[in-house]
Design a protein around this nucleic acid. Sequence first.
DNA 1: GTCGGACCTCAAGTACACTTGAGGTCAAGG
DNA 2: CCTTGACCTCAAGTGTACTTGAGGTCCGAC
Lengths: 152, 152
Amino acid sequence: MAASEGLSIGEMAARTGLAVSAIRYYEDEGLVQPWRNAGGQRRFQRADLRRLSFVMIAQRLGFSIAEIRAEMADLPRHRAPSKADWSRISVAFRARLEARIAALEDLRDRLDGCIGCGCLSLEACALYNPADSAATRGSGPRYLLGDAPAAK
Amino acid sequence: MAASEGLSIGEMAARTGLAVSAIRYYEDEGLVQPWRNAGGQRRFQRADLRRLSFVMIAQRLGFSIAEIRAEMADLPRHRAPSKADWSRISVAFRARLEARIAALEDLRDRLDGCIGCGCLSLEACALYNPADSAATRGSGPRYLLGDAPAAK
DNA sequence: GTCGGACCTCAAGTACACTTGAGGTCAAGG
DNA sequence: CCTTGACCTCAAGTGTACTTGAGGTCCGAC
């Protein structure tokens, strides 16, 4: 546990609250890049605690791993990220968050317009042709979830 | 195309914008219950257009199929749902939506507190121990997404 | 009557974010 | 030195919400 030897994956898990398997997965996804000790075990920098924490927060904010990876690409790989680095990213995230909130509020307002009118027929309801209908028409599942299904 | 014979799955797809396969899936999930004609093909009531539309909207609002099924369980199966039926459900949905918005705003406010302080270390940051930490600790993936990944 | 498009079932595939399991290695305490 | 727990890899499984494909049937227009 000498300070200069880096943290083991178990220590990282204990300190972030992530599962060991999740951390390994994040490495596969390129979100952290531990080195290996003589025996082939992963060793992490202290700065990786921040990186992982950032991943957790970003997930809560609704970003996919791919998006998080893109966002973190700007972070220095070898230097510990500075306050300025995190702030820059946080600002970007705030903008995305704001957009998400605005979209939900818009949806809520449309729904308000429909409550009571019973108009859930295809011709008239404003909910059917939202402004952003151009997007979200690809194939594959399109999630929009809010919280863990386990909570229900 | 006589009015009394019900709608084919292809007609339903054309009028809702859903894929035929999605409609069959929704039947498997118990969201609609078409009958079969002599040849074994599905025939839908006109009210099923509303049901499917409702499913689409609810998905946009972030509800899972299981939640939607639960919400729609109150709807009459044999009578076409009335305005009052839809309104009742819409009100419930609005509450859920509001909750989701509030959660995001809360997160945004926490993030605001962290921008610039660079405090993404585990000890101090308010983002790490949100009020709802009790929930969301089960296993399995916990989604929280905002919009389609295809959009990126 | 016949032909093609719409329909049928059932199994498997896809994407995301992980977890679980099998089978084996490493390291630190007694 | 030896045991035990932490670690390793790689493959497969999980859950949600579907799509795609294979192989076959049905219906309506000509």
